[in-house]
Computed example of a mutant assay.
Amino acid sequence: VKNNWATKDYVKYVLEREKAISTIYSNGVAIPHPMTMCGIKNTISVCVVKDRMLSSEKNIKLIFLINLRKDSYKLHKTITAYLVDLMENKKAVEELYKVNSFDEFMRIIYEWKGDVLCP
């Protein structure tokens, strides 16, 4: 919101979504996103949670904060499929959890799945 990548209601919508249904999934992967796509610029923010973070007895390791424009349905489907594959792959999650830099994170992503998100 501060960078003008999402509407001012973005945080409200993400929190509403989280209250309705948790977005913490398999193997410690969390994918918070708003109930309504309200992005101004398509972005995915990533956090590797190094300090133990528990929510509802689930240990969160990776957070992918999704922010997409309303016209990005196809991209939404691609990202969703990619993240479902990732969260079901415990080895890939563990490798990403151990990274210490953005370059290392992206290297593992590309080695694991290729350039699927940036054709």
Rank of each mutant, 00 (worst) to 15 (best):
V1I: 10
A6D: 07
K8W: 02
K8T: 11
D9G: 08
D9L: 06
Y10N: 11
Y13K: 11
Y13Q: 13
V14W: 07
V14G: 08
R17H: 12
A20K: 11
A20C: 02
S22V: 01
T23A: 06
Y25M: 07
S26T: 02
A30S: 10
M35I: 14
T36I: 15
T36R: 14
C38D: 14
G39I: 05
G39A: 09
G39N: 10
I40T: 13
I40Y: 07
N42G: 05
N42K: 07
T43V: 11
T43D: 01
T43M: 12
S45L: 08
S45Y: 09
V46C: 12
V46G: 04
C47T: 10
V49K: 03
K50V: 00
K50D: 07
R52H: 01
R52K: 11
R52D: 02
R52A: 03
M53T: 04
N59W: 01
N59G: 01
K61A: 03
F64S: 09
N67Q: 15
L68M: 09
K70Y: 08
D71R: 08
Y73E: 12
L75Y: 07
H76F: 15
A81T: 11
L83K: 07
L83C: 09
D85F: 07
L86R: 12
E88C: 14
E88K: 15
A92G: 03
V93Y: 13
V93L: 12
V93K: 15
E94G: 07
Y97Q: 14
Y97G: 11
N100L: 00
N100C: 04
F102P: 01
F102H: 07
D103I: 00
E104G: 13
F105I: 09
F105S: 05
M106G: 02
I108A: 12
Y110G: 02
Y110F: 13
E111D: 15
W112A: 12
K113F: 03
D115N: 15
D115W: 03
